[in-house]
Amino acid sequence: MTSLILIIISGVLVNNLVMSQFLGICPFLGISKKTETAFGMGMAVTFVMVLASVITYLIRAYLLLPFNLEYMQTIAFILVIAVLVQTVEIVLKKVSRSLYQALGVYLPLITTNCAVLGVAISNTTAVEGGYNLIQSAVNGLAGALGFTLALVAFAAIREKLAMNDLPKWMDGFPGALIAAGLMAVAFQGFAGLI
Protein backbone atom coordinates (compact mmCIF):
# COMPACT_ATOMS: atom_id res chain seq x y z
CA MET A 1 0.00 0.00 0.00
CA THR A 2 2.76 2.47 0.89
CA SER A 3 4.45 1.76 -2.39
CA LEU A 4 1.24 2.74 -4.18
CA ILE A 5 1.06 6.00 -2.22
CA LEU A 6 4.68 6.69 -3.13
CA ILE A 7 3.85 6.04 -6.77
CA ILE A 8 1.02 8.56 -6.57
CA ILE A 9 3.08 11.28 -4.90
CA SER A 10 5.91 10.64 -7.31
CA GLY A 11 3.61 10.78 -10.30
CA VAL A 12 1.74 13.93 -9.35
CA LEU A 13 4.42 16.07 -7.73
CA VAL A 14 7.94 14.73 -7.75
CA ASN A 15 8.14 13.39 -11.30
CA ASN A 16 5.35 15.45 -12.78
CA LEU A 17 5.00 14.47 -16.43
CA VAL A 18 5.10 18.02 -17.70
CA MET A 19 7.20 19.83 -15.11
CA SER A 20 9.90 17.23 -14.57
CA GLN A 21 9.81 14.76 -17.42
CA PHE A 22 9.00 17.09 -20.31
CA LEU A 23 6.21 14.84 -21.54
CA GLY A 24 2.97 16.17 -22.91
CA ILE A 25 4.40 19.59 -23.73
CA CYS A 26 2.46 20.03 -26.98
CA PRO A 27 -1.00 19.89 -25.38
CA PHE A 28 0.38 21.70 -22.34
CA LEU A 29 1.32 24.69 -24.49
CA GLY A 30 -1.52 24.28 -26.95
CA ILE A 31 -4.64 23.69 -24.86
CA SER A 32 -3.87 25.75 -21.84
CA LYS A 33 -5.71 28.92 -22.74
CA LYS A 34 -8.89 28.20 -20.84
CA THR A 35 -9.24 26.32 -17.57
CA GLU A 36 -12.40 24.47 -18.56
CA THR A 37 -10.89 23.08 -21.77
CA ALA A 38 -7.70 22.24 -19.94
CA PHE A 39 -9.65 20.30 -17.36
CA GLY A 40 -11.60 18.48 -20.04
CA MET A 41 -8.39 17.55 -21.81
CA GLY A 42 -6.92 16.39 -18.53
CA MET A 43 -9.86 14.11 -17.90
CA ALA A 44 -9.71 12.66 -21.42
CA VAL A 45 -5.99 12.02 -21.02
CA THR A 46 -6.57 10.42 -17.60
CA PHE A 47 -9.08 8.02 -19.09
CA VAL A 48 -6.80 7.07 -21.97
CA MET A 49 -3.69 6.86 -19.83
CA VAL A 50 -5.13 4.48 -17.24
CA LEU A 51 -6.61 2.19 -19.87
CA ALA A 52 -3.43 2.36 -21.95
CA SER A 53 -1.32 1.44 -18.92
CA VAL A 54 -3.45 -1.61 -18.27
CA ILE A 55 -3.75 -2.81 -21.87
CA THR A 56 -0.08 -2.28 -22.73
CA TYR A 57 0.86 -4.18 -19.59
CA LEU A 58 -1.32 -7.10 -20.62
CA ILE A 59 0.01 -7.09 -24.16
CA ARG A 60 3.57 -7.03 -22.92
CA ALA A 61 3.01 -9.74 -20.35
CA TYR A 62 1.03 -12.16 -22.48
CA LEU A 63 2.12 -11.44 -26.02
CA LEU A 64 5.47 -9.71 -26.34
CA LEU A 65 7.48 -11.39 -23.59
CA PRO A 66 6.37 -15.01 -24.03
CA PHE A 67 6.99 -14.86 -27.78
CA ASN A 68 10.27 -12.88 -27.56
CA LEU A 69 8.74 -10.01 -29.48
CA GLU A 70 10.04 -7.23 -27.21
CA TYR A 71 11.42 -5.29 -30.15
CA MET A 72 7.84 -4.89 -31.35
CA GLN A 73 6.98 -2.97 -28.19
CA THR A 74 6.99 0.50 -29.73
CA ILE A 75 4.75 -0.51 -32.63
CA ALA A 76 2.37 -2.50 -30.45
CA PHE A 77 2.04 0.20 -27.79
CA ILE A 78 1.40 3.05 -30.19
CA LEU A 79 -1.22 1.04 -32.08
CA VAL A 80 -3.03 0.27 -28.83
CA ILE A 81 -3.04 3.96 -27.93
CA ALA A 82 -4.28 4.98 -31.38
CA VAL A 83 -7.19 2.53 -31.16
CA LEU A 84 -7.98 3.66 -27.62
CA VAL A 85 -8.10 7.33 -28.61
CA GLN A 86 -10.33 6.54 -31.57
CA THR A 87 -12.71 4.75 -29.20
CA VAL A 88 -12.72 7.64 -26.73
CA GLU A 89 -13.52 9.99 -29.61
CA ILE A 90 -16.55 7.93 -30.62
CA VAL A 91 -17.77 7.60 -27.03
CA LEU A 92 -17.30 11.30 -26.30
CA LYS A 93 -19.21 12.29 -29.43
CA LYS A 94 -22.23 10.42 -28.08
CA VAL A 95 -21.92 11.22 -24.40
CA SER A 96 -20.72 14.82 -24.19
CA ARG A 97 -21.01 16.71 -27.47
CA SER A 98 -19.90 20.01 -25.95
CA LEU A 99 -16.67 18.59 -24.59
CA TYR A 100 -16.05 16.85 -27.89
CA GLN A 101 -16.39 20.15 -29.73
CA ALA A 102 -14.33 22.07 -27.18
CA LEU A 103 -11.43 19.68 -27.51
CA GLY A 104 -11.68 19.82 -31.29
CA VAL A 105 -8.54 18.72 -33.07
CA TYR A 106 -6.75 18.14 -29.79
CA LEU A 107 -8.61 14.93 -29.05
CA PRO A 108 -7.05 12.82 -31.81
CA LEU A 109 -3.78 14.50 -30.85
CA ILE A 110 -3.80 12.53 -27.60
CA THR A 111 -2.42 9.74 -29.76
CA THR A 112 0.73 11.73 -30.36
CA ASN A 113 0.79 12.93 -26.76
CA CYS A 114 4.18 11.67 -25.70
CA ALA A 115 2.91 11.50 -22.15
CA VAL A 116 0.63 8.55 -22.83
CA LEU A 117 3.21 6.48 -24.69
CA GLY A 118 5.86 7.73 -22.27
CA VAL A 119 4.00 6.43 -19.24
CA ALA A 120 3.31 3.11 -20.94
CA ILE A 121 7.00 2.67 -21.63
CA SER A 122 8.20 3.84 -18.23
CA ASN A 123 5.84 1.37 -16.61
CA THR A 124 8.02 -1.32 -18.13
CA THR A 125 11.29 0.16 -16.91
CA ALA A 126 10.30 1.61 -13.54
CA VAL A 127 11.52 -1.25 -11.43
CA GLU A 128 13.30 -4.48 -12.22
CA GLY A 129 10.95 -6.28 -14.55
CA GLY A 130 8.56 -3.36 -14.70
CA TYR A 131 5.50 -2.51 -12.63
CA ASN A 132 2.83 -5.13 -12.13
CA LEU A 133 -0.73 -4.60 -13.34
CA ILE A 134 -1.98 -2.63 -10.32
CA GLN A 135 1.16 -0.52 -10.14
CA SER A 136 0.98 0.24 -13.84
CA ALA A 137 -2.61 1.38 -13.56
CA VAL A 138 -1.88 3.51 -10.49
CA ASN A 139 1.18 5.01 -12.14
CA GLY A 140 -0.90 5.86 -15.19
CA LEU A 141 -3.52 7.47 -12.97
CA ALA A 142 -0.98 9.43 -10.96
CA GLY A 143 0.81 10.65 -14.06
CA ALA A 144 -2.45 11.76 -15.62
CA LEU A 145 -3.55 13.58 -12.46
CA GLY A 146 -0.23 15.38 -12.33
CA PHE A 147 -0.61 16.26 -16.00
CA THR A 148 -4.10 17.62 -15.34
CA LEU A 149 -2.87 19.62 -12.36
CA ALA A 150 -0.09 21.20 -14.40
CA LEU A 151 -2.42 21.89 -17.32
CA VAL A 152 -5.21 23.44 -15.25
CA ALA A 153 -2.90 25.56 -13.06
CA PHE A 154 -1.09 26.78 -16.17
CA ALA A 155 -4.36 27.59 -17.90
CA ALA A 156 -5.42 29.72 -14.93
CA ILE A 157 -2.09 31.52 -15.08
CA ARG A 158 -2.45 32.14 -18.81
CA GLU A 159 -5.98 33.44 -18.37
CA LYS A 160 -4.57 35.93 -15.88
CA LEU A 161 -1.64 36.81 -18.16
CA ALA A 162 -4.07 37.47 -21.02
CA MET A 163 -5.26 40.52 -19.07
CA ASN A 164 -1.73 41.85 -18.60
CA ASP A 165 0.22 44.31 -20.71
CA LEU A 166 2.78 41.79 -21.89
CA PRO A 167 5.43 43.21 -24.20
CA LYS A 168 4.70 42.33 -27.85
CA TRP A 169 7.54 39.88 -28.14
CA MET A 170 6.29 37.84 -25.19
CA ASP A 171 3.01 37.15 -26.95
CA GLY A 172 2.24 33.51 -27.59
CA PHE A 173 4.85 30.83 -27.14
CA PRO A 174 7.76 32.83 -25.68
CA GLY A 175 5.62 34.10 -22.82
CA ALA A 176 4.08 30.68 -22.30
CA LEU A 177 7.49 29.02 -22.21
CA ILE A 178 8.94 31.46 -19.70
CA ALA A 179 5.85 31.22 -17.53
CA ALA A 180 6.09 27.44 -17.71
CA GLY A 181 9.73 27.70 -16.72
CA LEU A 182 8.87 29.70 -13.62
CA MET A 183 6.15 27.20 -12.80
CA ALA A 184 8.77 24.47 -13.11
CA VAL A 185 10.92 26.34 -10.59
CA ALA A 186 8.09 26.01 -8.08
CA PHE A 187 7.78 22.29 -8.78
CA GLN A 188 11.48 21.80 -8.07
CA GLY A 189 10.56 22.08 -4.42
CA PHE A 190 9.29 18.53 -4.57
CA ALA A 191 12.46 17.18 -6.10
CA GLY A 192 13.97 15.62 -3.03
CA LEU A 193 10.70 14.39 -1.64
CA ILE A 194 11.00 10.67 -2.17
Partner: peptide, 29 residues
Protein backbone atom coordinates in the same frame (compact mmCIF):
# COMPACT_ATOMS: atom_id res chain seq x y z
CA UNK B 1 5.68 20.97 6.65
CA UNK B 2 5.92 18.28 3.98
CA UNK B 3 9.09 19.68 2.42
CA UNK B 4 10.77 20.25 5.77
CA UNK B 5 9.96 16.78 7.04
CA UNK B 6 10.11 14.54 4.00
CA UNK B 7 12.48 16.03 1.51
CA UNK B 8 16.22 16.30 1.35
CA UNK B 9 15.98 20.11 1.35
CA UNK B 10 16.49 21.51 4.86
CA UNK B 11 14.19 24.44 4.14
CA UNK B 12 11.01 24.55 2.14
CA UNK B 13 9.52 27.94 2.70
CA UNK B 14 10.43 29.47 -0.66
CA UNK B 15 9.12 26.53 -2.64
CA UNK B 16 5.96 26.26 -0.56
CA UNK B 17 5.11 29.89 -1.23
CA UNK B 18 6.10 29.71 -4.91
CA UNK B 19 3.90 26.66 -5.41
CA UNK B 20 0.96 28.51 -3.90
CA UNK B 21 1.78 31.51 -6.14
CA UNK B 22 1.33 29.12 -9.07
CA UNK B 23 -2.01 27.94 -7.69
CA UNK B 24 -3.24 31.45 -6.85
CA UNK B 25 -4.93 32.13 -10.24
CA UNK B 26 -6.72 28.79 -9.82
CA UNK B 27 -7.74 29.65 -6.26
CA UNK B 28 -9.03 32.99 -7.51
CA UNK B 29 -11.06 31.20 -10.18
Amino acid sequence: FVIREFSSYPEGCSFAILFLNVLTPLIDR
